[in-house]
Amino acid sequence: MSVRLKDLPTEELLHKGNLACAGCPEMIGFRHVLRALGPETIVINATGCLAVITQMGVPLVPHFHVLFENAPAVVSGIDDALRVQGRREGVNLLVVAGDGGTADIGLGSLSGAIERGQDFIYVCFDNEMYMNTGGQRSGTTPYLARTTTTPVGVESRGEPRTEMRRKDMVEIAVAHGIPYAASASIGYPLDLVERVEKAARVRGPTYIHVHSPCPTGWGMEPSKTVEAAQLAVKTGCVVLYEVEEGKRRVTRPVARRAPVEEYLKLQARFRHVVADPAALAEVQRGVDERHAAILARMA
């Protein structure tokens, strides 16, 4: 049964006032994740934008900013300590991290924590680049996107690694035999809340990958965050699905995909692609191929 607007928990657990940029997707996502989990939640936050922008307030849930790559190891220690002390019941252990902290520097630590079967909810807010340090490419940066380390110039036209070889964190988690993994988007908060609530009911590791369009990093109007997030799903750049004990299911099917250009043209990082029909066609092909590969796994 789907979460409806009137079912949304009303208690706000994100403290008032923060240092986020205008239009920050992480603030939208984090707010809904906390609402879904409720006050009996401990947040373990890997280095990244969220760790910085949540600093200046009185927290409503315990919030532990740790190092860049060790949040899954820290949560492992918390999980085991609470167990040995008989205090594990009724507490959600939430790890939040960005795509750099998850797909790149923290991948080993996350892999270990999932493999050991530690009990935690891992939420990755993926803005497809390192934005806390000002916009460098990461393991999830899309093909041909301009970042500060994949500039557009005579010898280069943005991120060179193709769409099919982008790190797919949901599938990496699933390859561990994780009991629950899902993709989600800040553009679909009810769907996100449902994924988080489901993860909270699972004993053991769970992973939710939340697509988070970043106006500052992507060169968008701050008012376009949600629109971009929804267009990413409507164009098939992002597929929302969940994997329960290995069984995959698309949670938000898209009947007719919109052309990828509609999504790209909102973003300055793809300006050189939108202006070049050949490059645009190449990106469309890459997205089609990746989309088809994801859907092919659903059966």
């Binding site: 060790n70 220690g77 085991d80 002390q85």
Partner: peptide
């Protein structure tokens, strides 16, 4: 509880987590 971690970096990190809840 033994946390059979995948690296020393994680070993000390797990100790930090456990210590943060008073163990």
């Amino acid at each position: 509880r033994l946390v059979r971690v995948e690296s020393e970096h994680s070993a000390l990190s797990a100790c930090c987590g456990a210590s943060a809840v008073g163990a």
